[in-house]
Amino acid sequence: MFYDVLFLLALIASVSMCIYRIGIGPTPPDRSVAIDVLGTVMVGFCVLSALKTGNDFYLDVALAWTLISFIGGLSLAKFLEGRRFDE
């Protein structure tokens, strides 16, 4: 029980660092990288919930979150290259 709270606090610290980088990032690519990493850390939250509650639909959420984060990262990268979203 103590370890679960420890893991949760560690993940919350990681998310805070990502949000810090999103806030102060000097250039747009910094913010995009931090958003992409934030999406991957959220998958970690889903996995932790699945392991501790025993419900397997949290892993479905993790799977969908992976793919949506991937598509979001690719479209952010295309936007950084100076192209439109619908190419």
């Binding site: 995009s32 993790a62 799977l63 990262g73 952010l76």
Partner: peptide, 25 residues
Amino acid sequence: CMIFILITSPTSAHAMARGAYRSKV
């Protein structure tokens, strides 16, 4: 989920690095 993470995460990083270079960082 592990297979998807191992395929998509480096691809996304690669696209992001190229986008950062093209946007003159």
